[in-house]
């Protein structure tokens, strides 16, 4: 019995790395989900071999050929047989359902002591808000501690997916959706958006950075002070990267979803309503807080408002950054 347990534990450990079918197991729930996956896989494999094996066997053995004839009279009905292959599969689907449901409960109910991080998804960027109000483009988390994500969308439906954690949850505008996980080792893991959201859907990537024990809190404190430590233009550059500006506005003059920031300062833009505007402090501020009010001609009004999401000091830093891009 003891030897068996050790062997099982060995299997569980061996399952941590990426396999042919499944990615690395980097969260506490991954092993359980993969176990259910494996259970269904082998059960299906058995049924598949039976069905296809018999199909091939019969097709060869009973193929019509000269000199071969079977008795013309066959039974075309057998209640016992038919009930057997109705009842056996009916019984087998019960454990599949049950294991799937049990693992699902484990993965959807966050433990009470979870560390809470806000997630904001918008076309096509992720923003992660820490308890002290700091916002980052990546999801930084401590290792071995449950993390609860309270997620909201600024525009359309998105979905938060970390393959290595086996965690996925839609983010629906107009409500909060919850996800949680507990990372089991330090390292980085990709975050995908898995609900189709338009042009930049496949580039709406981010990463989870799992910090080793004791290093998360110092990182957060250090990262949160960037406004005080950096010159406004440098802080603005950080905000540009972290808060979703760069998904649509380039700084090298190429056109993406919105106008480029390069050389924008002081330039005159024609707006979609026919009027003209010069890019200066108040126009930039207005465009951040109420983007739909002054859309540059030739662009779609897809930018969400940042009202309440950027502090005055942060808006000033972004303005300084745009100024610096002459």
């Amino acid at each position: 019995m003891g030897a068996l347990l050790i062997a099982l534990a060995g299997l569980a450990l061996a399952g941590k790395e990426k396999t042919f079918w499944l990615p690395k197991q980097s969260s506490t729930i991954a092993a359980e989900i993969d176990w259910v996956w494996g259970f269904i896989f082998w059960l299906s494999a058995i049924f598949f071999v039976i069905i296809v094996g018999l199909t091939i066997l019969f097709a060869i053995q009973y193929r019509a050929r000269p000199g071969y004839a079977t008795a013309r009279k066959h039974s075309s009905h057998n209640m016992t047989l038919e009930l057997t292959w109705t009842i056996i599969p009916s019984l087998l689907i019960i454990p599949i359902f049950w294991f799937g449901f049990k693992a699902y409960l484990d993965m959807t109910v966050p433990p009470a002591n979870s560390y809470e991080i806000g997630v904001t998804a918008q076309r096509w960027a992720w923003m992660f808000t820490y308890p002290n109000g700091y916002v980052d483009e990546n999801l930084h988390v401590p290792v071995d501690r449950p993390v609860k994500l309270v997620m909201q969308s600024e525009d359309v439906i998105h979905s938060f997916f970390v393959p290595n954690f086996r965690v996925k949850r839609d983010i629906v505008p107009g409500r909060y959706n919850i996800a949680w996980f507990e990372a089991t080792e330090a390292g980085e893991h990709v975050i995908f958006c898995t609900e189709y959201c338009g042009t930049g859907h496949s580039d709406m990537l981010s990463k989870v950075v799992v910090h080793p024990a004791g290093e998360f809190e110092p990182w957060l404190e250090d990262a949160s002070n960037f406004l005080d430590k950096l010159a406004p233009a440098e802080a603005g550059a950080m905000l540009y990267n972290m808060r979703g500006c760069k998904q649509c506005h380039t700084v090298d003059g190429t056109i993406r979803i919105g106008p480029s920031f390069k050389g924008a300062w002081g330039a005159e833009h024609a707006l979609s309503d026919g009027s003209k505007v010069t890019v200066e402090e108040n126009y930039v501020r207005q465009s951040i807080l109420d983007p739909a009010s002054q859309v540059v001609a030739g662009y779609d009004a897809v930018m969400p408002t940042y009202k309440g999401r950027l502090k005055d000091q942060e808006i000033t830093a972004i303005i300084a950054y745009i100024k610096s891009l002459q």
């Binding site: 699902y104 996925k168 609900e195």
Partner: peptide
């Protein structure tokens, strides 16, 4: 069957 099982569907959904 993989997609009907709740926990496994969560991983495989929209992939």
């Amino acid at each position: 069957l993989f997609l009907g099982a709740l926990a496994v569907d969560i991983h495989l959904h929209d992939t």
